[in-house]
Amino acid sequence: MSGSSAGGGQVVVNRSMSLDGFIAGPGDTMGWVHDYLTADTFPEVMAATGAMLVGRRTHEVARQMAAEDTDYDGGPVFVLTHRPPDEPVAGVTFLSCDLAEAVATARAAAGGKNLEVLGADLASQCLRQGLVDEVLVYVLPVLLGDGVRFSTPGLGRIELEPVSRQQSGAVTLLRFRVPAARPAG
């Protein structure tokens, strides 16, 4: 069943990817993304986003990058983790529930707009459980050679339906629909 069955916006896996399939470089480096992509590259994506659900590792990488130009405002941020921090983090809600409940909580906060899912492991889990409506991929003209792959091992085959392709400068945005009914594994 699709993540949008509860109404409102879509559940969208949103990521930048090098041409050789990495969403982060060695050591989780992400600065290369900002060489090509800014919040102004595809402003309609940010405008359609109401909240973000982020994996813990991705959240930690983003915090390390906070000094860099990361002025993307995707609405309230929820981090799904087994280990919430002892001290609160401004602007972040930590969730320690099951995946479907986390998606429902973040979708409710999105106020009818899209929920972005960030992080390879979290996105793979959402895809495996049929909670994703769309996948957006910003293909950047760079080869990294190593790093964090687009999806985690064990995701299995998932057929996607191409929806659109847009170009902005050197960046290509590919949009795919995830069919509501698909075979497992």
Rank of each mutant, 00 (worst) to 15 (best):
S4P: 09
G9P: 07
G9N: 11
V12W: 07
V13W: 01
R15D: 03
R15V: 13
R15L: 12
R15I: 02
I23R: 06
A24V: 06
P26Y: 01
P26E: 13
G27W: 04
G27A: 15
D28V: 02
T29E: 10
M30H: 05
G31T: 15
G31H: 14
W32C: 13
D35I: 04
T38G: 08
D40R: 14
T41C: 07
P43H: 09
E44M: 09
V45S: 04
A47L: 08
A47M: 09
A48M: 04
M52A: 13
L53D: 03
V54L: 02
T58D: 03
V61R: 04
Q64G: 14
Q64L: 04
M65E: 10
A66W: 05
Y72I: 10
G74P: 01
G74Y: 09
G75Y: 03
V77D: 03
F78W: 04
V79D: 01
T81K: 04
P84Y: 00
E87T: 08
V89G: 08
G91K: 05
V92Q: 09
F94G: 12
F94C: 08
L95Y: 10
S96K: 04
C97H: 10
E101Q: 15
E101N: 14
A104Y: 05
A108W: 01
A109V: 12
G111A: 14
K113V: 05
K113F: 00
N114P: 13
E116S: 12
E116C: 08
G119F: 02
L122Q: 02
A123N: 07
A123W: 05
S124H: 02
S124V: 06
C126M: 06
L127D: 11
R128M: 09
G130Y: 03
L131H: 14
L131N: 14
V132L: 05
V132N: 12
D133F: 00
V135H: 00
L136N: 15
Y138M: 08
Y138C: 13
L140I: 13
V142Q: 05
V142E: 02
L144W: 00
G145P: 11
D146T: 14
G147F: 04
V148S: 02
F150S: 00
S151D: 06
T152A: 15
P153E: 10
P153F: 07
G154E: 05
L155G: 11
L155H: 08
E159N: 12
L160W: 01
L160N: 03
L160P: 02
P162I: 08
V163R: 09
R165T: 15
R165N: 07
A170P: 14
V171W: 03
T172N: 02
T172E: 10
T172G: 02
L173P: 08
R175V: 12
F176C: 07
V178G: 08
A180E: 11
R182Q: 11
P183T: 12
G185T: 06
